[in-house]
Computed example of a mutant assay.
Amino acid sequence: MSDQAAGLSPALTREALGKRRGRWRQYGFYYLMLAPALLGFLVFHYFPMYGVIMAFKNYRFIDGIWGSPWIGLDNFNQLFGDMFFWRILRNTLIISGLHILFGFPAPILLALLFNELANGSFKRVVQTISYLPHFMSWVILSGIMIELLSPSRGALNYVITLFGGEPIHFLANPDTFVGVLVVSHLWQSVGWGSIIYLAAIAGINQDQYESATIDGANRFHQIRYITLPSLVPVMTVLFILNVGGVMNAGFDQIFNLYNPAVYSVADIIDTYVYRIGLIDTKYGFSTAVGLFKNVVALVLVVGTNYIVKRFNEYGIW
């Protein structure tokens, strides 16, 4: 269709093209910086999505994805009829729920405490120490936890026996294993999670604090009536994202800490997929489990965003 037929004069078309070129000249360097990240996202997240058709096939390695026969919803029927699936779904929801219950408010509290530190040098040292676990893999962190909680040589059991107690097998006891997961998750994530809230606190207009001080407000009042309300937009977005990640209970952490003695409380969807897919080579069935998990996660994100926006103006979109 020509510009005249579309109702656009040649002058307006040239002006629009000129503005577009101007934007490319002004922001072209930033687009160039963004390109590798977008390319990586496409290659590792979107292009592999064609593999979800394995969930509807009896996948055989020798036939490939397209050559394997279609079986419809048989993998999903097998999934929902498996008694172990409902156990791992329960475990996933419980562990993720505890992570949110304790892990969501912890970075907020830590950021508020950091913000109240007056000694700059001490503040930087404490912040650095709190960030360090985030940069360690769960292989290293799990090794540290195993040594600390060992019933024969662990520091924690040494203190327990020192006061006359009996050593506790924290990592082999279903009653204590979930607690270990929650505590170690907090240790690994709380410092890094506080960075976002510290950045949000730094953006609050300091005139509000000065006015509150003149009106006689103490530090607690300033936190309650200025800092926390100013953090609501950030808190809302992060809460929605956390709820969307409920189906991811932390594969790396659990895989490096669990053992058959605690499967009843520690076996989650991701570890189940690992065993069924990579060890038992049931690729179609494991793909069906992963697809179910991702669909539920999408519903949770959309649903949580909708509910949150009913109560305030903030959300992901």
Rank of each mutant, 00 (worst) to 15 (best):
F177D: 01
F177T: 03
F177H: 08
V178A: 00
V178G: 03
G179T: 06
G179F: 02
V180N: 01
L181V: 05
V182Y: 10
V183Y: 09
V183E: 07
S184E: 10
H185N: 14
Q188C: 07
S189V: 07
S189I: 06
V190N: 00
G191S: 08
G191C: 04
G193N: 07
S194Y: 13
S194F: 12
I196D: 01
I196L: 13
L198I: 12
L198Y: 04
A199E: 03
A200P: 06
A202Y: 06
I204G: 01
N205I: 08
N205K: 10
Q206H: 15
D207V: 03
Y209A: 12
S211L: 14
S211V: 13
A212L: 12
T213F: 11
T213D: 06
I214R: 08
I214V: 15
I214P: 12
N218R: 13
R219I: 14
R219V: 12
H221A: 14
Q222R: 15
Q222S: 14
I223V: 15
I223K: 11
R224V: 11
R224D: 01
Y225M: 11
Y225C: 06
Y225N: 09
T227E: 02
T227A: 09
T227P: 09
L228M: 13
L228V: 15
L228P: 10
L228E: 08
P229T: 10
P229H: 02
S230I: 02
S230R: 03
S230H: 13
L231G: 09
L231S: 09
L231F: 11
V232L: 15
V232P: 04
P233V: 05
V234M: 15
T236L: 07
V237L: 09
L238R: 14
F239N: 01
F239E: 08
I240Y: 04
I240H: 00
V243K: 00
V243D: 07
V243Y: 00
G244I: 06
G244D: 11
G244S: 06
G245K: 00
V246Y: 03
M247D: 04
M247P: 02
N248S: 10
A249V: 10
G250D: 11
F251Y: 15
D252G: 12
Q253C: 04
Q253Y: 03
Q253D: 01
N256Y: 14
L257T: 12
L257Q: 04
N259Y: 08
P260G: 03
A261C: 02
A261Y: 02
V262Q: 03
V262H: 01
V262D: 10
S264V: 14
A266W: 08
D267P: 00
D267Y: 13
I268C: 07
I268A: 11
I269L: 14
D270N: 10
T271V: 00
T271M: 07
Y272M: 10
V273I: 15
Y274C: 04
Y274M: 12
R275F: 14
G277K: 05
L278S: 14
I279C: 04
I279D: 12
D280L: 08
D280F: 14
